[in-house]
Amino acid sequence: MMRRIFIAIAMIFCFGLFVFNAEIERLAVTPMKFPVPKGFPLPEYRFQNNPLTKEGFELGRKLFYDGRLSKDGNFPCASCHQQFASFSTYDHPLSHGFNDQFTTRNAPALINVAWMKELHWDGGINHIEVQPLSPMTASNEMAENIDSVLTKLRADNSYKKMFRAAYGDDKINSQRMLKALAQFVAMLISADSKYDKMKRGEASFSATEKSGYEIFQNKCSSCHREPLFTDDSYRNTGLPVNPKLNDFGRMIITGKSEDSLKFKVPSLRNVYLTAPYGHDGRFYSIGAVIDHYRNSVVDGPTTDSLLRKKIAINDDEKYDLLQFLRTLTDSTFIKDKRFAQPAN
């Protein structure tokens, strides 16, 4: 018994999972628990200096859906990260931004972001709290500047109330805004698909799904590693560069030629909700992605060694694989009212 208590106490302190916090006690806030799904590793983001609270989360949610974070009011975070599409952009290869502009990349699904070491297709962002600054200030996305956003928020009494509720006074600054957004985005946890239910013994796979799962484990899971379905690494999957975009991925960040054309391995959770696929959305179906791995991987100097010889998948296997990938859809998540646009 003592041993269990000790382990529990040690876990709370070691992992910083925010139970004991003097600040929370001082403020009249409602602490929230960060639920690590069974079988998941510990998250990368552990809410250090940002204790998770109901008030902080709700503030983050309001900000996420607020067009005032963009220059013309039309581009809230949610314009490219739609809940029904697992917080990716439905049916758009490249995101749209301010003044009818395209971005150069496909909006990634915002799921299980708290487990990512770095963010963006090129890994340019090293911390979940500072990520929103990138789309907010990019001239082809939200096209705003930080001071201007804060001025708009300060003029709104409902924000004053919410900042006070979350932080104890109504000071509105970038740090508070960003920490609240991080609370909302980190809480977008998806772990209730048929696959998860099967793992928990609450559902069972059909013969086809079972076969697809085996094929997946043999041919896909070294990069799309369970349970997050990504190993969070950067790889060149043999996609030729689009000469109109000239996007060389990770190399833009590191400046190293060995990182040319490498992009972050995306999670396959909710993959049936996040079409189109690839960093520039060039594939309109999952079948087309599989066909690329079967037939058209370009063997360039930085192409991933696991893909150099392509992946042998026959038509029957492809069918089973697709049936398995369907089991990764988490319909609870996309209907979760906590993550929907707030009423006010």
Partner: peptide, 21 residues
């Protein structure tokens, strides 16, 4: 690498790369 800061390190001062932290 420690997330959102305030005071003189507030990214609103324009001394922060938003696309390559």
């Amino acid at each position: 690498v420690s997330g959102a800061q305030d005071g003189d390190l507030d990214p609103a001062h324009g001394m922060f790369w938003t696309w390559n932290t």
